[in-house]
Structures are given as structure tokens and as C-alpha cells.
Nucleic acid binder design. Structure first.
Lengths: 165, 165
DNA sequence: GCAAATAATTCAACCTTCAAACCATATTTA
DNA sequence: TAAATATGGTTTGAAGGTTGAATTATTTGC
């Protein structure tokens, strides 16, 4: 009802939606370029980033059920991108690791969006970068307000600035 | 190689990813609460916001094929949420409009995330809001750099600040 | 040892998505 | 006007994604 900051909320939502849309559309293109589905690519990314991960952890991080992860991993195994390695600590668990083929696919994947974003980001002045990070984190806080294990995987390939796990 | 702004890029990507994840997870929960699938809900939202929209426009806005839109609209029609109304200007076209049932479902949909976001946003100081909008738009520009028709639909229901189409 | 909890898989059902083929209408061109 | 072309939508068939419930194997607790 008040009129103080009228369309600002709309504007922010519109911008947010543009961000969502751009990343979603890009995820599809990228996955297609790699020859995988978006979901499969996401699994491969996570598996590659962590050296080894269980289906349960994968399910948690992706926000899908374990059954879904099983199906996705099946496909990746069939394509020789990942391997299932039974855990020795706990024989109920399975560790999923990327094969060389899988890693290579990720390396070679074109990362147009991330390239573009990273490049544009790097081009900003220092204080602008700081402000952007601050703003994004603020929005993220407003949105999730949950504990979430978000690793710096937006698309594929490690961020340019060397940063080894 | 330079060390000036090393992890800022990572930080921004992580925040971005949190945003993506929060909205994605929420979209599922919301859709489930409404009794529709996420894709169906998206269609209903767009249809409700614009008074009337053709499958082609819907496909463009959603970034999917027309065939997909047809399938989604079929489901919504079956549930009595939308109607197909043949255009009179151009008989090849079909206009899709929300029924009262469909509109009502949207109205009643719990909009937890948007509530939370809008509330948190409103709580910010004026200059903070302005800065946030500016930052989000900047990121959106970096990401899409395409012409995109993004309407202010993040989730559901109109933004609280009265705003009648 | 035995019951309960946990990790993963299988199964059946439903949803999304798309390319290609197809139908109807509109527009252009001869 | 008739034919060719373009456009909007739908149908169909195939490939996936997603899940809840049931199942198997293992671990944990008593």
C-alpha cells in the first residue's frame, strides 16, 4: 500500500528472473555441447569437484532423491564418465568417482557463460566487485536462510584463478 | 595469475549458486503445494500474469519447444486451470487464458519464498535497495546479454505492492 | 543373536522435452 | 484465382528425469 519504494521490488525480481533464466538456458546448451543431459552434467561436476562422493551426499547436495541419483549415475557409468567404488569403511556405501574420460569431458567443455561472466566480473573495478559480492550474498541470504553446502560450481571447469581443492 | 581480487569471483559464483538453488528447490515445493508440477505452475503463472498468451509466446518465454507447451497446456486444461480460446484475428492462433479456478489456485498458493524475500527486501534502507537492484541488474547483464522478455514473475501471486496489469 | 536404522538399488508410474510429421490457416507470388 | 510458401499448433514416438514404495545388504544398538 505504501508508495515509498514502489517498483524496486519488482525490478529486483525481474533481474533475479533474468539471472535464473540465463543460467537455466545456458545449462541446457552446455550439457548438450558436452553430450550429456543437464542433470547428468551436474552430477559429473559435483563428482569431479569433490574427489569422491556417495549417492546420499549427492542427493542431498542436488536436492533430489537417492533413486534419482542412482538413475543418473547409471547413465554416467554407462557412458564411462564415472565409476562406482564400494566403500571399505562402510560396505553399505558406494563412492562415486570421475574417470579420466569424465574429467576430460569436463575440462574440454566450453564454458561460454562462465567465461563471459568471469571475464565481465574481472573487468569491474575493485570496489564494484566487492559491492556485487556483498549484494549477491545478501540476496542469497534472503532467499535461502538455510544451511546449504554450495560449492563454487556454477557450470564447469574450475574457476580461472587457480584454486586447487 | 594476478592476486588482486582472487576469491571474489568464487564468492560471487557461490552466492549465485545459492540463489539458484534456493529458487529451484522452492519452485518444487510451491508447485507441489499447489498440486501442479513446476513446469505446469510456470505456465499458469505466465498465463495469469498476461491476460492471454499464445503457445508460441509461451514457448519463447519459457525457452522450450511448442510441443512441450502443448503438452503442458493439455494438463492444465484437463485440470480446469486454463482454457484454449481460438483467436479471431488469426485462426491459426490459440489464446490461452486462466480460468477462475486457475486464478484462485494462484491466489491461494503459499508464497513463502517470495514473502520472505519481499519482506526482507522491504526492510532494507532505501539506498540499500537501490544498490541491490543495481547489482542484480548488472549480474543479469553479464549473464544473459541477450534480449529476454522477463516479466516480474518469480514465483506466484502478484507482488504485494499493488500493481494491476 | 536380533531388531532397528542406514545406504543403495530396483520397480512402476508419471512428468518433461523434443524432433519430425501433420493439419489448418495466412501470406506471397505467379 | 491458384499454387507455393510460411506460420501456428498439435500429434506421435522416443529418451530422460523424478519419485515413493519395496528390496537387499550392512551396520548399529540392545
Amino acid at each position: 500500500m505504501s508508495i515509498s519504494a514502489p517498483d524496486r521490488t519488482d525490478e529486483s525480481l525481474i533481474a533475479l528472473r533474468r539471472i535464473l533464466r540465463a543460467t537455466e538456458l545456458f545449462a541446457r546448451d552446455l550439457a548438450q555441447a558436452v553430450g550429456l543431459s543437464p542433470a547428468q552434467l551436474r552430477v559429473l561436476q559435483i563428482v569431479a569437484e569433490r574427489r569422491s562422493v556417495t549417492p546420499k551426499a549427492l542427493a542431498n547436495q542436488m536436492g533430489v532423491s537417492q533413486a534419482t541419483v542412482t538413475a543418473l549415475v547409471d547413465k554416467l557409468v554407462a557412458r564411462g564418465m564415472v565409476e562406482r567404488i564400494p566403500s571399505e569403511q562402510d560396505r553399505r556405501q558406494t563412492n562415486i568417482v570421475a574417470t579420466q574420460v569424465g574429467s576430460a569431458h569436463l575440462e574440454n567443455a566450453p564454458d561460454a557463460l562462465q567465461q563471459r561472466y568471469v571475464a565481465a566480473f574481472a573487468r569491474l573495478r575493485d570496489w564494484e566487485q566487492a559491492q556485487l559480492v556483498s549484494s549477491l550474498e545478501r540476496v542469497a541470504d534472503m532467499l535461502d536462510a538455510q544451511d546449504i553446502d554450495a560449492s563454487p560450481v556454477l557450470t564447469t571447469g574450475d574457476i580461472q584463478s587457480g584454486r586447487k581443492g
